[in-house]
């Protein structure tokens, strides 16, 4: 579980995060949504420890990040997996090399043990017979699968995903969403996903946090988002005619 309390982050005069408090539960897919510029990416980077907040605390299963020693912070980071928006695969390495990288770097496993683990996670993300391919030879969906495999290869406690299905076709996007949800449940991981894809919100948003102008405007589940009358949320989530109709149908059915 990740608990965030009164988080503030500024860049010069620009106050990006203005006192956000939230709880991300274990074994659930937690989504951060909001318009571009609302502070989602900065919030995610604070959770990852890439940005140091000016005020507030982030606690990972009781361990407050700002109170940890550098060594403890590094250890904590090895419990985190991250799927970047552009996958961030190492261009100079093969699929196998990319997935093996954290094992090679931080464990004392033998080459064959590492290979077994790599093949296991690649099979788990449904990517077989691609071990020797380079990232430039992969499609967008395959790159995302490799990025997920690399993120889970060390058995992380926390999985962070920045726009995991951006640039993917709708079918592949749903497959990636479902894969992340399955992995979250299977390994009991605390997963935090940064997204503005409404399909993801409806499909896998077990807990949703809506950010607006650096504040937490709303929080709830994908079922509660149908019922909310928060204007900022409804304007954002139901901006398309299709989603307006979906919501209308849901509310009519409920009544």
């Amino acid at each position: 579980m990740i608990e965030v309390n009164n988080l503030h982050k500024s860049f010069g005069d620009h106050h990006v995060l203005k006192g956000i408090s939230a709880t991300f539960e274990k074994g659930k897919t937690n989504l951060i949504i909001g318009q571009s510029g609302s502070g989602k990416t900065v919030f995610l980077k604070c959770l990852l420890g890439l940005f140091e907040p000016e005020q507030g605390t982030i606690s990972y299963d009781g361990r407050v990040y700002s109170e940890l020693e550098p060594r403890e912070r590094r250890d904590l980071r090895q419990e985190m997996g991250m799927v970047f928006q552009g996958s961030a695969l190492f261009d100079s390495m093969t699929v196998e090399g990319n997935v093996m990288f954290p094992l090679d770097m931080f464990t004392k496993q033998s080459k064959s043990e590492m290979l077994d683990r790599v093949n296991f996670v690649l099979k788990r993300v449904n990517l077989v017979n691609s071990n020797q391919k380079f990232p430039s030879e992969l499609s967008g969906g395959m790159k995302k699968r490799v990025a997920i495999a690399r993120a889970i290869v060390m058995n992380p406690k926390y999985l962070f995903c920045d726009e995991p299905n951006s640039g993917l076709d709708p079918k592949t996007a749903i497959l990636i969403d479902n894969l992340i949800q399955e992995i979250t449940r299977e390994y009991d991981i605390t997963t935090v996903i940064n997204s503005h894809d409404m399909n993801s919100v409806m499909e896998i948003g077990e807990k949703i946090i809506f950010l607006k102008d650096g504040f937490k405007e709303w929080e709830g589940s994908n079922m509660e988002i149908f019922k909310t009358d928060n204007e900022a949320v409804t304007n954002f989530v139901y901006s398309s005619e299709l989603f307006k109709k979906v919501r209308q149908m849901y509310l009519e059915e409920r009544n």
Partner: peptide
């Protein structure tokens, strides 16, 4: 290029 494509961030996140 590693900075632009977030590969450096990926290294940092891994510790």
């Amino acid at each position: 290029t590693m900075r632009v494509t977030e590969q450096i961030d990926a290294l940092e996140v891994m510790g």
